[in-house]
Amino acid sequence: MNKLILGRYFPGNSVLHQLDPRAKLMAALYFIGLLFYVENGQGYLYLFIFTLMMMRLSRVALMTYIRGVKPLIWLILFATCLRVLFTGGGTVYFNMGPFIISSFGLLTGIYTFSRFVMIIFVSTIVTLTTKPIDLTDAISFLLHPLKYVKIPVEDFVLMLTIALRFIPNLLDETQKVMDAQRARGTVFGEGNLLQQMKKLVPIILPLFASSLNRAEAMADVMEVKGYQSGKKRSSFRQLSWSRRDSLCLMGMVVLTLGLHVLNEVNVLLLIASIY
């Protein structure tokens, strides 16, 4: 349980830590969008080098990021396999029913894989260097425009804040319940899939029970303290935008230009090779 890196904050003092959470969040979202604009291997390489640079800038050990990908590796491999098996084109190496393994499919598989890994790396960079509370402030800011179409952004953000606030508690509690069931003779990580799933019941049910109790208590306390949704509120924490943050966004523009060039160059090469 303690191995989950994605979503954990890592106190520090790097440039990335000092960036405004709004800038970081926008840049990360933009970068993820950019991943879908890449057209060739060199583009992926280019973005990957950029990601590695950012990971270095965060001053968090590379191992930490790799451990962050580990819990999700099966999901990624599954998605990759789907891409490989259902994409045709190029040289066909293997064909059976709807499944096909082709050179084009393999290439797409590699792209899908690196795209996933980069998405996880970049999200990890953001969460490792941003306090959850700052992150919710940033989300609140980005969602702000939705208020004009009568979406209760503040309630949503409050929900998010509470949820984030209770993740560590939930993890602690999971650990405790797991320990308690271990002491009663449960051995985790043994037996077939069905048996292993069965072993989760004695963990999940107590967690549900305690989470519901806690939510109820929390709602009561908020009620008693006079919380009402839709009231206008000021904020205790103030975010401040500095030159650094503008530079960060500028950096994204430059990155895009670079990628654009790489995409074009390849097209040119393609045309050249045809003639």
Binding site: E173, K176, V177, D179, A180, Q181, A183, R184, V201, P202, I203, L205, P206, A209, S210
Partner: peptide, 14 residues
Amino acid sequence: VGMVFQFPEHQLFA
């Protein structure tokens, strides 16, 4: 070794 945790009622599930 039987271990009774703090607030052991939090482990009840059946």
